[in-house]
Simulated assay, not measured.
Amino acid sequence: MKQDFNADYWQQRYLSNQTGWDTQGITTPLKAYFDQLTNKDLRILIPGCGNAYEAEYLFNQGFKHVYVADVAPAPLENFAKRVTDFPKDHLLLQNFFDLQGGYDLIVEQTFFCALNPDLRAAYARKCAELLVPGGRLVGLLFDTEFAKEGPPFGGSAAEYKQYFEPYFKFMHFERAYNSIAPRQGSELFINLQKK
């Protein structure tokens, strides 16, 4: 039977602490990217946010229009306890594919690899739909195959390009040079601009 990676599945993963993807903090490539952003008024979405260390970092740096979305309540509750002054209406307990648009930046950090690979083309299309013209999809994708069945699900740069090319200009799409140690040599850093 094929696993349904629904809200219950992810909620149980959090409740049983089966969160091997959780880095306990913001990763180096995203921190480096965020540190060069100057417009604090950007509307930023982090889908499949998990414990949302990226949102915590951005919020603490003065970005006040950060929204986080997840289908499981546990990570959003964890985040709300950790970042008590984060606006509650920016915590979106929603399926990514049901979200509405108007974002300048979408941050990708281990959400794409958690989706059933059958949804990858739909993910690219939905990101484009959620972004304003010229908006960006920035983050990390695994550029490797995994030995065990996912999630996480691996893939390759060549595969990913076919999903994003219809909607985005590729500003940067290369192997990350500053990945955290466990992911060194297996991540692409992407910076894609909506056409």
Rank of each mutant, 00 (worst) to 15 (best):
T28G: 14
I44Q: 05
K31A: 14
T28E: 15
F142G: 00
F170D: 01
T27I: 02
E77R: 12
F34L: 04
G20E: 13
E187G: 00
L141K: 07
K88A: 04
A72H: 02
D41R: 12
G185Y: 09
W21C: 08
D89A: 10
A74V: 14
E165Q: 10
F34A: 03
F59C: 04
Y177D: 11
F142M: 13
L131I: 01
E108G: 05
T19Q: 06
D118K: 13
V71W: 05
A158H: 11
F34I: 12
R175C: 14
E77H: 06
F112A: 08
D8G: 03
I26K: 12
L93W: 03
D70E: 01
F111I: 13
F5H: 00
Q184R: 15
V132F: 04
Q24N: 15
F112G: 12
A176Y: 02
G155T: 02
F112W: 05
G139S: 09
Q24W: 10
L105H: 02
F164Y: 14
G139F: 03
K148N: 11
I180Y: 14
G134I: 12
T28K: 11
G185D: 03
L91Y: 00
Q109W: 02
Q193S: 10
V66Q: 09
K126N: 13
E145C: 02
L137W: 08
Y57N: 08
E159A: 09
A181N: 06
P151E: 07
P152K: 00
S186M: 12
A80V: 08
Y167F: 15
T27H: 05
Q193F: 09
E149P: 08
A176H: 02
T144E: 14
K169G: 10
D35C: 10
F96H: 09
V138D: 07
Y103M: 12
F97L: 03
Y33T: 04
T84Q: 10
N191G: 11
K126T: 08
A128Q: 02
A158P: 02
F168N: 05
K161C: 14
P73C: 00
L42C: 13
K64M: 11
D22Q: 13
D98H: 13
F97G: 03
G139Q: 02
Y167V: 07
A69N: 15
P29C: 10
D118H: 07
E174Y: 03
N17L: 11
Q18E: 12
L99V: 05
G185T: 05
P182N: 11
V132L: 15
Y163H: 15
Y33Q: 10
T23W: 06
C127S: 15
Y167N: 04
N17G: 01
F86Y: 15
I106Q: 09
I46L: 14
K194G: 13
A147P: 07
L141F: 13
E129Q: 12
F111R: 14
D22Y: 05
V68M: 00
E56L: 07
D104R: 12
G25N: 04
Y163D: 04
Y163L: 06
K195G: 00
P73R: 12
L115Q: 11
C113H: 11
R82Y: 13
Y103I: 01
A52G: 09
E77S: 05
Y53F: 07
E56Q: 11
E165K: 12
A147H: 03
